[in-house]
């Protein structure tokens, strides 16, 4: 298969998934609204102490982002699996890992990116200053694609299983821990005037690592799932 054909298939997958997301807006909105509500519950629950909120803020936003991403993961391959389009994807002459990467990219654009965009707004509730908000934005921008990529492996492994949702959380959440530590840590480090550079570099490294490794592992898991 020639390179233009390869690129065309990747673009076709991304375009199709974005179009479907556009026609099923309720699905996309669910995880976003979940994120907004969970984050907003904390200031209501713990009271309006600015010092406490500033300390809690980054961690709360990051934990809520993890959970919101988890919520959307089950959808990543489940519909394609049920209607047979996943089989056609496996049969395509293009490398499956590349098509998986395309699907994950579309998934992130519809679930991860909206979280990144509203996060600074929610951060204001925690009295985070402009610098901290910027770092929060950067850490989510680097971290959430990793969540989608790693989550893809879990989604593929639990495909077609009954009660797969709970299993998916058990599989994937432990793998999310490094992203959570460095993501929330970046904002805290910058608040402590230590500079967020090291944390953000590590997040970028995690992203690069999972870009290489995750689609390949997901593709393997998908082949097993459709057997």
């Amino acid at each position: 298969m020639s390179a233009p054909g390869l690129l065309d298939s990747v673009v076709a997958v991304v375009a199709r998934d974005l179009r479907i997301a556009l026609r099923r807006r309720a699905d996309v909105m669910t995880s976003l609204i979940f994120f907004v509500i969970v984050v907003s519950l904390f200031p209501l629950g713990v009271g309006a102490d600015p010092v406490l909120l500033r300390t809690l803020g980054p961690g709360v936003v990051w934990v809520a982002a993890l959970l919101a991403c988890m919520l959307a993961l089950a959808r990543l391959f489940a519909n394609d699996y049920a209607d047979g389009t996943l089989e056609q994807m496996v049969l395509a002459p293009q490398p499956l890992a590349l098509l998986v990467l395309a699907k994950t990219a579309a998934h992130w654009l519809t679930t991860g990116l909206p979280l990144v965009i509203v996060a600074p707004l929610l951060g204001v509730q925690f009295d985070l200053d402009a610098d901290a908000l910027l770092i929060l934005l950067a850490s989510l921008l680097l971290g959430t694609p990793t969540l989608s990529l790693i989550g893809g492996i879990g989604a593929a492994l639990t495909l077609g299983l009954r009660g797969g949702g709970a299993l998916l959380a058990l599989l994937v959440l432990p793998l999310y821990i490094p992203v959570l530590i460095f993501g929330a840590g970046a904002v805290e480090a910058s608040a402590a005037a230590l500079g967020a550079g090291a944390h953000l570099s590590l997040l970028a490294a995690l992203l690069l690592g999972s870009l290489v490794f995750a689609p390949w592992a997901t593709a393997l898991a998908l082949r097993i799932a459709i057997e």
């Binding site: 047979g84 389009t85 089989e87 056609q88 049969l91």
Partner: peptide, 13 residues
């Protein structure tokens, strides 16, 4: 070219 049990169509499209 494969035609399976499922039609491999997206309802939304």
């Amino acid at each position: 070219a494969y035609l399976g049990h499922h039609n491999a169509l997206k309802d939304e499209l």
